[in-house]
Every structure is written in structure tokens, then in C-alpha cells.
Simulated assay, not measured.
Amino acid sequence: EDGGSAYLTTRVKTLAALKGEFGDVVHVTQGVKNGGAPGRYATEDPDRYAVLEPGRQYVVAVQSGSTAGTSGTEAWAWYAEPADRGLTGEREHWQEAIATPPATAASSTCEDVDASAG
């Protein structure tokens, strides 16, 4: 914990890099909160940000940090979901997702800010 925020760093074995380069083992840090039971953690959005657990396979997108896996470095997880489709299925799914434009275009405007309020 640091200043009211809790972080969990997990040592992750890379099975395959779907995009970019990753070391054989990468330390991945996530923001977490207590999950009720001792030693258990949760996240605000478990559908897009699963807490990494030993022995399971995940697709992890890294927001920042080192993916080289060198000693003393870590990467910050931006997205983590169980790899339920298997290695080949995940690769196919994400290659298709990257190649397919979104149904609606992203807007660069910020809709939750009232510009007139100053």
C-alpha cells in the first residue's frame, strides 16, 4: 500500500507476445483493493482488469514500464483478462480486433467537462 492505494506485483511467464517484445519473465504491477478474504485482492473492473493469479493464463496489455524482464524493472498492467480461448484462439481474436475498426469513432473531446464553467 502507498498513500491509500494498493498495488500487487506479479512475476509473469511470457508464453507468447501478441504485440511488442516481452522478456521470458516480466514483473507486472496492478492496482488492487482488498477482496474480503485474507490474501485475496479485487479490482474495480474485473471484466477488463482481472487480478493475476498463479497457475492461470492471461492476456495482459501493458500501459507503461519495461517489458524486457530485466532485474529491478516492472510493467504496469492496463488490461488483464483470462486467456479462455487458448494461445492460438487469443492470438486470432486479438489480431482480428486490432484489424477491425471500432463501430463508433473515438472522440477527442471531453464530454464531462463544462467549458463555460471555466
Rank of each mutant, 00 (worst) to 15 (best):
E1H: 06
D2P: 00
G4L: 09
S5H: 08
S5K: 14
S5E: 12
Y7M: 07
Y7K: 02
L8G: 11
T9L: 08
R11T: 15
V12M: 15
L18Y: 08
L18T: 05
E21F: 02
F22I: 06
V25Y: 12
V26A: 05
H27K: 11
T29H: 00
T29F: 00
T29Q: 13
Q30S: 06
V32Y: 12
V32W: 11
K33P: 02
K33A: 13
N34G: 12
G35K: 14
G36I: 07
E44S: 15
E44L: 14
E44W: 13
D45Q: 13
P46K: 14
P46T: 10
D47F: 04
D47E: 14
D47C: 00
R48L: 13
Y49S: 13
Y49V: 12
A50E: 08
V51N: 10
V51P: 09
L52M: 15
E53Y: 00
P54W: 08
R56K: 15
Y58T: 10
V59L: 05
A61K: 04
V62D: 00
Q63N: 03
S64L: 01
G65D: 01
G65M: 01
S66C: 01
A68W: 02
A68K: 05
T70H: 04
T73W: 06
E74T: 06
Y79H: 15
P82S: 11
D84S: 12
D84I: 10
R85T: 03
E92D: 12
W94F: 14
Q95E: 11
E96Y: 00
A97G: 02
A99P: 05
A99H: 03
T100F: 03
P101D: 09
P102K: 07
P102V: 10
A103G: 05
A103E: 02
T104P: 00
A106C: 04
A106S: 10
C110E: 11
E111K: 08
E111W: 07
D114K: 09
G118D: 07
